[in-house]
């Protein structure tokens, strides 16, 4: 279970305060107006931004000072989720070993993960030879192998077309379901949030609010969110 206990996350001169609990195996949308601090929240949990007050705990352990690599977190960014000079197998293999020392068993798992996301036989390709959708699939394969209990996503499929984005979201939800990971996803599209999340965190005016059902929040948005959604 992830807890942000009166945590203040600093991003330059901007600060975001969060006091909330995230139960295990939940799918959560992070929703809020532009510039409200959605990315700040995600990057604070991932360990890229400093927590200046309060603390972040995971299953009771204080992880506030832990570097990103040793947190129970896997993350997908908006872009650049793969190293362009490494093959798909190497990129996915990084999920098992950061220094790429892979045993025979590891290599089999990499191949299987690529197959699972629909990239069978593409082990030796490089990201530059793939389409945007295929690159997203490869990144998902790595997330699968990382097998972290918390999966953070900062609009990873924003650059894809609508149909492809839905496909990726479904694949993402499937993988999260299989590994039992908690999903925390920033989304600008209400239909994305409705599609794969049950809970939502509203981020507005420098505060991340406690969890509430996604459907409730979107059906009856508070004024600050209504202006943003334009409905």
């Amino acid at each position: 279970m992830l807890k942000l206990e009166s945590a203040t996350i600093r991003n330059g001169s901007f600060t975001l305060t969060a006091d909330l609990t995230v139960p295990d195996s939940t799918t959560i949308a992070v929703i809020g107006p532009s510039g409200a601090g959605k990315s700040t929240l995600i990057e604070g949990i991932a360990g890229f931004l400093p927590v200046t007050q309060g603390r972040i705990t995971w299953d009771g352990t204080d992880i506030t000072g832990h570097p990103p690599g040793s947190r129970p977190v896997a993350m997908l960014f908006q872009e650049d989720n793969l190293f362009p000079h490494l093959t798909l197998a190497q990129n996915v293999g990084l999920g098992l070993s950061p220094n790429l020392r892979l045993s025979q068993g590891d290599k089999t798992r990499v191949t299987a993960a690529l197959e699972r996301v629909g990239l069978a036989g593409m082990d030796t390709r490089k990201p530059g030879e793939l389409s945007g959708g295929q690159r997203s699939r490869a990144a998902l394969a790595r997330v699968m192998l990382q097998d972290k209990p918390l999966l953070l996503l900062d609009e990873p499929f924003a650059a894809l077309g609508p149909a492809l984005r839905m496909e990726m979201l479904d694949l993402l939800a499937e993988i999260a379901g299989e590994t039992g990971a908690t999903l925390l996803m920033i989304s600008h599209a209400p239909e994305d949030a409705r599609r794969i999340t049950t809970q939502a965190i509203l981020v507005a005016n420098g505060t991340a609010h406690a969890l509430q059902p996604t459907a409730d929040l979107l059906d009856d948005p508070p004024p600050v969110l209504r202006d943003y959604l334009g409905s």
Partner: peptide, 16 residues
């Protein structure tokens, strides 16, 4: 950041 999130800080990032 991608390297950090994969725990590649230090030598692995340099080398790979």
């Amino acid at each position: 950041r991608l390297g950090l999130s994969l725990g590649m800080a230090g030598l692995p990032f340099l080398r790979h």
